[in-house]
Amino acid sequence: MKNKEIKIILIGALIVGGIVSLFASSFPDGLEKVAEDRGFIDKGFSIISGMMPDYLFPGIENEMLATSLAGIWGTLLVFVVIFIVGKLLIKRYVLDDSGKSEKK
């Protein structure tokens, strides 16, 4: 890891995703509420429900633990994916002096 601050923020993010998320309100969010009130909430569905629908880690009975694990897993996933995307952005990117990019 590059520097101290990155570590601090990553730890902060893991605490928010893994612990603070347990205290999240279960009320519908703004858009869901509007959709409920106007009667079109049932139109909504997910084509891909994903590995962890509703931010619950699969195969775990205890809902709090499942939420916490999903939060930690997701936080790390986002970190790693953006990191990889970033590395791909900078890899094999060499320009010759005419300014054209050339893959090596």
Binding site: A13, V16, I82
Partner: peptide, 8 residues
């Protein structure tokens, strides 16, 4: 990467 993780 770290800000993305935090936003998530």
């Amino acid at each position: 990467a770290v800000i993305g993780a935090f936003v998530f």
